[in-house]
């Protein structure tokens, strides 16, 4: 059973302008098993994005360790796919080439990686936009490409950093439903960062509430799938779970 193990993780910044040290993350431990969908939720400045950046390997950790499948991680790697809040699509590559980027890095021949890319574009419902450039797409479409690009590389863990924060409300709900559908079909391990409580509850199997760089509490979400907003909106269990998480976040 592959899993992601985080033990006693901490991060201390040196603030050059202030001339002092800042503790962004303090002693976070977490275990994520394969195929799990975990949401990290908390107010801005709680350290959730810092934790994700350390798992992704973009920034080094100051203390503790992160192990994926038993191996300690060093720097960014294709075993951990990342979906960025601001999409981070390559503007000089077509949608198809963006999605095929990961396979290209592994030396997969053009015909095969195009096929893979098309398959994942199909999965996110963007097969028709393969030859367009990112700037010709709406925000919601761009983030679909971002998800397809990360999935097409077959990562062991998918790290999502507030991926739906910069799209409009209707599109966000559609994207959330699509993400739960994709998760059910493919069962990737997902760590999902958000400050939106109902988004965290709607998506995840487990919600972890962060505060001031530490884990405050966690809540299991045993809601049935498939999850769609039309049903869950009025669902008593969803409401009570959301209320519980919201209380935790507000007490933080």
């Amino acid at each position: 059973m592959r899993s992601l193990t985080i033990r006693d993780l901490s991060k201390t910044y040196f603030d050059a302008y202030a001339g002092s040290h800042v503790d962004a993350v303090r002693g976070v431990s977490l275990e994520v098993t394969q195929g799990e969908f975990v949401s990290l939720v908390g107010p801005s400045g709680c350290g959730k994005t810092t934790i994700l950046n350390m798992i992704a390997g973009f920034i080094p950790c100051s203390g503790g360790e992160i192990r994926l499948d038993g191996r300690a991680i060093h720097g960014p790697g294709p075993d951990r796919g990342v979906v960025f809040q601001s999409f981070a699509l390559f503007p000089w590559k077509t949608v198809l080439d963006n999605v095929g980027f990961g396979p290209k890095m592994r030396g997969v021949p053009k015909a095969e990686r195009d096929r893979t890319a098309r398959e994942y574009l199909e999965l996110v419902g963007l097969a028709h936009a393969a030859d367009r450039y990112p700037n010709e797409l709406s925000g919601g479409m761009q983030q679909r490409v971002g998800v397809a690009r990360a999935l097409a590389n077959n990562p062991e863990v998918l790290l999502m950093d507030e991926p739906f924060a910069s799209v409009d409300a209707q599109t966000r709900m559609t994207l959330q439903e699509e993400l739960t559908r994709i998760w059910q079909e493919r069962r990737p391990t997902i760590i999902f960062i958000t400050h939106d409580v109902s988004e965290a509850v709607f998506l995840a199997n487990r919600v972890i509430v962060l505060s001031k760089g530490q884990i405050l509490d966690e809540v299991d979400i045993a809601l049935p799938r498939p999850r769609v907003w039309d049903k869950l909106h009025e669902d008593a269990a969803f409401k009570s779970l959301s209320g519980k998480v919201l209380q935790l976040v507000r007490s933080a």
Partner: peptide
């Protein structure tokens, strides 16, 4: 070039 593009490439396996 936005740092996130370099991050994106690195996390997709680019050396």
């Amino acid at each position: 070039i936005p740092m996130r593009l370099r991050y994106a490439a690195a996390s997709l396996g680019a050396g």
